[in-house]
Nucleic acid binder design. Structure first.
Lengths: 348, 348
DNA sequence: TTTATTTACGCAAACGTTCCCGATAATGAT
DNA sequence: ATCATTATCGGGAACGTTTGCGTAAATAAA
């Protein structure tokens, strides 16, 4: 099934004039007489003419579209980021093409290549949890391809970046747990390749040390697949609770990690917060509906998407190469609910 | 910032041969000698040649991309549908462009026009809750533009459709509530424009009648904006509970409606299921974590995305116009948890 | 009236590809 | 040695659009 579109030629033929005249008339060029313009406009309207963006892209060597690579969209944080991205892109007439890496390095490479070959004008990317080697990104970047990193970034690439103050998020979450009397705080986190892992865990460690607690490496559990595989989280949580000194609190540094952790605890029959407290990095909008209402570090996801897109479009539309890059650091918010506050402590 | 790509011309120039030879060599044409082919292939590899899909699109008058319009992606059901869509599209080399109507008719019209003008080869759409007038879709459809409707469909357009057995979903949910002793079951649903509203409410009504209960129109609350505005849900729920005969159960027919309903009940201090039971249409993956664990009608969302995409690609790639259309009806699953089962009833 | 300027339009190239149609040279058949 | 056939390649049009350049007619300036 093909579906024939009206072209500028059809208008030209119908009016017995040249295509260049039609083109200029449609673009409201000063070289075209008002009468001809009106004629063309009327005819275009009548034939329901729509400019062919593909032809335009070919001509202008730009597609007016940007690519987005995230691990998955079925994730509150990322879908909110995407909303932010779209809000800006939409206004500026850019199209957004979303790709999911599913936390796989291989898929990320393929996605990137696909997007670049689809002639997107720029790229917004949050790295997959598997990603360690960055040659695929560097290759594009050194060619002058506009890229903005967000959320899971890397310092190996010198470009605009938008992140949240992950250190602070980790610090605040941990300090909050400490203040509520927890002495054995574990952390459930992503692969060690990820910037967010380092930063959040660093905040966690610093909060421990600043409050006179020791860092126990056995309390730090990494999930290589970042929670894409439930069993991985389950194993990690189980490992925490088969130790001699079981944790009295868990700080989960990601959306999937948090929900996966809660599920595992529930299945093990552990009560939150009585047996173990939980604080999670999460942008779920039903934190208050969870049993118990979940204390979360919430990220300004929409804002992050907006900022990243603004920076990217700035990169794309700049005439001369940009050499000075910006790193925007947004502030996360600790939303305290019951999952991190033991009943007795509440009554202090 | 522009970024210069290697073209077929560059290869031709480097090798001192014509572009047609290069093109044919790359396509492994029989007319090209093995030596030349190897030369071209090596050169393409060396220069890191990537075919320009835009040029190809212009030539072949197809973009190898499909458009998807949903109300929003930050919704478990739709993000799962999209995963299904991508799984098929990816395999077949199609690109997926996602647009969000945000339940707005105006945005849906704009999105549609945008996608069509972006030269997508076909369209997958689930109608917005505001959509009543279908001229925008019909216009495209009568032009021969391949469209597949899913989830929120309309009978006004004769094409492939993929839905869930919404009647059955509504029936099963309601019957389950009745079996658990509920006598005053209310339903919180979307706008009356939506097919899913009719079907689910019809199932609800039928279950009532089949079990000797009367349909009370005061128990049927429509949310015009489908839950995009929390206050709307809040109002609807409040309206239910300011009646003389307060409901003892609520059946919410959508994801947002369900969570919004739960939030409102919680804020009103109503206990689920003791004060009121709840069953929701939802694809959330944390139904078990909600307080209380939520009974849901779960839809095979991934499957729906896959099926719809298969049908669309079939439409797109068919040589001759298709006149016989299919309507696939998938089966929803009632997952029973505690939110719909009163404690006493449990002990039966 | 002649020349210079403006107005209003058309021609054709270009963007990167594919592919139809030749064209040349080498091979085979006679 | 002549003709038909094959193998291998190039020229150029086409997809839909924009745009630099050219040019005819109309107007203004001399």
């Amino acid at each position: 099934m093909k579906f024939e579109a009206v072209t500028i030629k059809d208008i030209a033929r119908a009016l017995g004039i040249s295509t260049s005249t039609v083109s200029r008339a449609l673009r409201d060029s000063y070289e075209i007489s008002p009468e001809t313009k009106q004629l063309v406009l009327d005819c275009a309207e009548k034939l329901n003419y729509r400019p062919n963006p593909i032809a335009l892209s070919l001509k202008e060597r730009r597609s007016r579209s940007i690519g987005v690579v995230v691990c998955e969209i079925a994730n509150n944080f990322f879908s909110q980021v995407i909303n932010g991205i779209e809000s800006i892109a939409y206004d500026k007439g850019y199209n957004v093409i979303i790709s999911q890496s599913r936390e796989s390095y291989d898929r990320e490479v393929i996605d990137l290549q696909y997007l670049a070959s689809r002639s997107v004008d720029g790229l917004l990317i949050s790295l997959s949890t598997e990603t360690n080697d960055l040659t695929h990104l560097k290759a594009l970047h050194t060619k002058g391809f506009p890229i903005v990193l967000f959320d899971r970034i890397t310092e190996e690439i010198n470009t605009h970046k938008v992140i949240v103050d992950n250190f602070r998020g980790g610090y605040d979450a941990t300090e909050h747990l400490i203040r509520n009397g927890h002495k054995r705080i574990a952390v459930l986190t992503n692969s060690e390749f990820l910037s967010i892992t380092h930063e959040r865990v660093a905040g966690y460690k610093e909060a421990l040390l600043a409050n006179g607690q020791k860092v126990n490496e056995d309390y730090i559990q990494h999930c290589f697949y970042g929670g894409m595989i439930f069993e991985e989280i389950e194993d990690a949580v189980n490992k925490l609770f088969t130790q001699r000194n079981k944790p009295d609190a868990i700080f989960a540094t990601g959306d999937k990690l948090t929900t996966g952790c809660l599920k595992t605890l529930k299945r093990r029959g552990l009560k939150v917060p009585d047996d173990v407290s939980v604080v999670g990095f999460s942008n779920t909008d039903i934190a208050e509906l969870i049993d118990p209402p979940l204390t979360v570090v919430r990220q300004p996801a929409f804002e992050m998407g907006k900022d990243a897109t603004e920076l990217l479009l700035q990169l794309i539309e700049s005439k001369r190469p940009i050499k000075e890059f910006e790193k925007r650091i947004l502030t996360p918010e600790l939303q305290i609910r019951e999952s991190s506050v033991k009943k007795m402590v509440v009554a202090e």
